[in-house]
Amino acid sequence: MNDIGISLRDAGVRFEIDSAGESLKSKILSLGRNKSEARYVDALSNIDIEIKHGERVGLIGLNGAGKSTLLKVMARIYPVTSGNAETHGHVCPMFEFATGFEMNQSGWDNIRIRGMLLGMTPDEIEEKLPEIGAFTELGEFLDYPVRTYSAGMFIRLAFAVSTSINPEILLLDEVMGAGDINFAQKAKIRMSEFMRQGKILVFTSHSMDLIRDFCERTIWINKGRIMIDAPTDIAISQYLKNS
């Protein structure tokens, strides 16, 4: 099974919402009482998807429909609570750019750390380091600890590192709006190059134009279920008609 691919069979994810809250104290105190009904949310249910080498898939749906959850299942971050989920290949997840930094280390060190987290070898990183540093346009700020950075600077840094790798499976979660006007322009170009490199691309967006640009197949998700899984034009017209 060295083939790159994603396969979900009847997969479901259920979030449990513990009414006793998140503290051990209240848990112990409520032991004696009658157990209140455990509440849960089915974030995803009965998902069947096969994605093969070379496919570019768009995910559309309203906020809270389960798009991000589905991406995290594909990335093996969320274990499914029912059914089966398998992902073969090196995954490059790009979900959020604002977390996963070592606050007290310099920008350069964070580039190295993030690069290794994304699967680069130390040699590769050293080789690409000047190029990544230049792309961020952060200049001397890269020598400062990243806790002094602004939100926009974090995004520049993370974006530059994340897009410098050669991804096998690229999972993107609505990340186009990165940085100020200048950077957004630059980011857009780099992102398109990057997305064309991936052997498998799955991404969520609310921009139908982007989806049309990149994906030949689109999945519309609503309330954790697949509404339609079809060629992009058909899926988008259905989606626009019905929501």
Binding site: K72, A75, R76, I77, V91, P93, F95, E96, T99, G100, F101, L117
Partner: peptide, 10 residues
Amino acid sequence: AEGYIKQFPF
């Protein structure tokens, strides 16, 4: 490590 756990499948 929340930032890492939610972002990477290590």
